[in-house]
Nucleic acid binder design. Structure first.
Lengths: 164, 164
DNA sequence: TCTGATTGCTTGTACGGCCAATTAAATGCC
DNA sequence: GGCATTTAATTGGCCGTACAAGCAATCAGA
C-alpha cells in the first residue's frame, strides 16, 4: 500500500466542485465495516485456498461438522443464506467431494446433506486455518477488548437481524 | 426467524459423532464478523435497490463524489479492490449512466472516470440511504460505544491490512 | 376428499469479487 | 536509440450471493 498522490484534483473549471477537504460522504462505521469485512474475507480466502475451499464454504462445512447430516432447509436457516445460494454451494461441494446429497425419506422434497470422509480429513485443517484467521484479526487486542468486540458485534448483528 | 428444531441429530449408528454440545468450530469473532458483514451488506442492498445501485457500487460513487474525476488506478487504490473488479464495475456504472470514461491525455493507458449529471442527482439520495444504514446498524449504541466500535474496527482493519 | 396455500428446492440471470493471462503504453537502463 | 521492466486496463473463468420464477411434494381447510 503506497501513497497515491499522483493525481491531484481541482484542475477544472470549477475548482471546488468536489469535496476534498470535507467529504460529504464522511467516514462512517458502515464504511469501516465494509472494508474490514472485505479484508477479513480476503484473508480467509488465502488461508482456505490451499485446502481447496472458497470463502463461505467453510461456514457451511462447519455446520455439517457441528450438527451432522441435515436437510438443506436447516442449513439455509442456520447460515442465513438464500436457498438458491445454498443449493449451488452444496452442488459445488459435492462436486469437490466434500458432501453427499440424498433425498429424505420423511419428506421427498427435502435433500439431506452429509459430510464425506474427505470432509472429515479436512475438518482439522479448517479449524486450524480459522484459528489463524482469528489470531490475525485480533492481534494486539487484549481479552477485555476482544470481549468488547464480541459484545458490540453481537448487538449490531441483533440490530441488523430485525427489520428496519 | 422461527426455531428450527424439526431435525434432531444423533439418530445414527454412532450417536456422538457430531459435536452438538461442544462445537469444535466454536463461535468466534470471525464468525460474528462474517454474519454481521452479510447482514450489513444485505441491508445496504435493500436501501440502494430503489436507487438503481448494487451494494459496492455506492462506495465507488462516493469516491468520485469526494475526489472528482480520477483514473481507475486511483479508484483501485482507494477502494482496495482488484483491478478487474473495478473495470467491470465501472463498465456497468457507465451502462447505467452514472459515470463516463475517457482515456487520459497524460497517460494513454489510463482511463479517467467521472460522475455524470445523473450521478450528481443520485448523491443526495445515497448519502441519505447511507445515513439510514448507519442508524439501523448502530441503533441502541450510545456515543462512547460507537466510538469504541470505530476504534476497535480500526485496529482490526489495521491488523488485516498488513501481511500475516 | 379435493383444492388452495405453503414448503423445499432448482434454475436463470445478474452483480461483486478474486486470480491468471494478455495487451498496450510508459519508464528506466544501457 | 533500443530493449527489459513496470504499470494500466481488459478479458476469461470461477465462486458467493441475491432475486425472480417455477416445479413438485406436503399440508390444511372446506
Amino acid at each position: 500500500m503506497q501513497a497515491s498522490t499522483r493525481w491531484l484534483p481541482c484542475q477544472q473549471e470549477n475548482p471546488c466542485a468536489y469535496n476534498d477537504c470535507m467529504s460529504a460522504t464522511h467516514d462512517t462505521i458502515s464504511h469501516a465495516l465494509s472494508r474490514v469485512a472485505r479484508l477479513h474475507r480476503s484473508a480467509a480466502g488465502q488461508l482456505l485456498r490451499r485446502l481447496g475451499l472458497h470463502p463461505g464454504q467453510e461456514l457451511l462445512m462447519m455446520q455439517l461438522w457441528d450438527h451432522g447430516p441435515q436437510p438443506q432447509s436447516q442449513l439455509i436457516d442456520l447460515l442465513g443464506l438464500d436457498a438458491s445460494t445454498v443449493t449451488r454451494m452444496v452442488q459445488r461441494l459435492e462436486q469437490a467431494g466434500f458432501v453427499r446429497r440424498r433425498r429424505s425419506d420423511d419428506d421427498r422434497r427435502a435433500v439431506v446433506v452429509e459430510p464425506t470422509a474427505a470432509a472429515q480429513a479436512l475438518q482439522e485443517q479448517v479449524v486450524h486455518a480459522w484459528q489463524q484467521l482469528e489470531d490475525l484479526t485480533l492481534r494486539g487486542l487484549d481479552e477485555p477488548e476482544r470481549a468488547a468486540v464480541a459484545e458490540l458485534l453481537g448487538r449490531i448483528e441483533n440490530n441488523l437481524s430485525q427489520p428496519g
